[in-house]
Each structure stands twice: as C-alpha cells, then as structure tokens.
C-alpha cells in the first residue's frame, strides 16, 4: 500500500504516519500518491528524452526518444520514417546529422519536418566512417546513419556505449547494423494513395509499422501511419 518512494525521506514518512490515522482510505491513498510524486527526483537519467512528433508517440514505449538509445528502421519507406522520427527533436531545437546517404532528397527531408538549418550532411569514406560517427555522437542530438557497407560488431558496440555516455540518439536505416536496436521499427507494408491510371498525383503513403525492441520496448506494437501524409509531413490515419 505504501509507495516505497514515499518512504524515502523522513518528511514523507511523517506525512504517511499522519495520514495513517485518517479513516478514509481512498483519500489517504490519493494523498499518498501525491507525496510519492513529490519525493521523486525531477528527472532520472533514463527519463531524459527527446520529443517525437504526435502521430509517432505510440511507437515508443516512453512516448519519446530516450537519450542514448538506438532506433533501427527497416523496410521500404525506411528513409521517410527515419526522417519523421528525427523531425520531433529537430523542431524542438536539436541538430540532426545524416551520415552516408549520397542521394538524400533534401526537399522531402524538409517536408517531413526536419529543420534544414540545423541539418549536417556528412559523407565520410568507409574507412573514416566510425570516427566520423563517433565525433558526431555527443555533439549532435540525433544522428541518422544509412551505411552502404557492413559495420563491424566491435564498432557497433563501441558506438552503443558512446551513445549511452553522451546521450545522443542514433537512428540507423537498413539492416547493416549488427547490434540489436533499443527500438526497432519494421515496415511490413506500404500503400501509396492518390495515383490512378493516368490521373492523380502521389498524395500520401499508408505504412504498416511493427515496433519491437529491448527492455520496455520489447512489447510488440503495431501502428498504421501516413508517411508522408498530404503535404509531405507525417500524419495519423483519419479515423
């Protein structure tokens, strides 16, 4: 019945004893919860998060990107989805770096919500790949990696440790990353809307996204979204 956190301080214990004398157990419990909230530290390290756009919230166990985590995006439409994930932190002032995507369509990146004035495009040689990534981690909040070559297991583990230490988020596109992601988003199916036989224009794409991952993200999730929606930004499916 007693919240263990509420027991953490003497102040809270006194309050709890005082409350114990009251008869009404329902109000007592409610007030205890208030006390519990009050003695919780403001933000635990693992609770430091970066916001994501509203439609994407159900895909993440905390409803936001946890700092220091790795997000994997796979399947047809992965680039759009990765940019949409990065758009949340980017609109709230974070910098985004894209490593190794030579053909990226910048107009689409902007439409999906990434602030182009805070975007760095880095194109290292495969030999410099990990040193470039290591330099970006910690300096830039969101790093999007789209490797065209295989990343070694050691490099990936070292990068994961560095991410946890520095608090940046790595989003990797494709299946070239050897270590499992904290949050893995797989695109099961995609369907374009707006185009007919000789008429219309591409308007939006409905993506069927399967979420999995490790720890609190291991519970499977499924979500349908418009990536991109009308106008190019990500949108929730109209009910």
């Amino acid at each position: 019945m007693f919240d263990t956190r509420a027991m953490a301080t003497g102040h809270a214990r006194n309050l709890a004893v005082e409350l114990d004398e009251r008869a009404d157990s329902a109000t007592r419990r409610a007030e205890l919860r208030l006390v519990g909230d009050r003695v919780t530290p403001m933000a635990l390290a693992r609770e430091q998060t970066l916001p994501v756009l509203g439609p994407l919230v159900p895909l993440f166990p905390e409803g936001a990107l946890r700092r220091g985590s790795i997000v994997g995006v796979r399947g047809s439409g992965a680039t759009s989805l990765a940019m949409a994930v990065a758009a949340g932190p980017s609109t709230s002032g974070a910098w985004t770096a894209v490593v190794g995507d030579p053909d990226l369509g910048l107009a689409a990146v902007g439409e999906l919500g990434v602030a182009l004035e805070r975007l760095l495009i880095v194109r290292p040689e495969p030999g410099n790949w990990s040193s470039a990534l290591a330099a970006l981690v910690g300096a830039v909040d969101v790093v999007i990696a789209a490797p065209r070559h295989c990343i070694s297991d050691t490099d990936a583990r070292r990068m994961a440790a560095r991410l946890r230490e520095r608090g940046s988020v790595l989003i990797h596109v494709g299946d070239r990353w050897p270590v499992g992601a904290d949050v893995q988003l797989d695109i099961a199916a995609g369907e374009w809307e707006g185009l007919g036989d000789g008429h219309g224009v591409l308007r939006s794409r409905r993506l069927d996204i399967q979420g999995s991952g490790r720890g609190s993200a291991s519970c499977p999730r499924q979500l349908e979204l418009l990536v991109p929606g009308p106008g190019g930004a990500v949108a929730a499916l109209a009910a």
Partner: peptide
C-alpha cells in the same frame, strides 16, 4: 514543380 510529397531519394 510537382507538389509535395517530394521524393526522398534523388538519384545523382
């Protein structure tokens, strides 16, 4: 100009 959404991959 083609309307949004723009292509995410512009082939060099």
């Amino acid at each position: 100009m083609l309307p949004a959404p723009s292509p995410t991959r512009v082939l060099a």
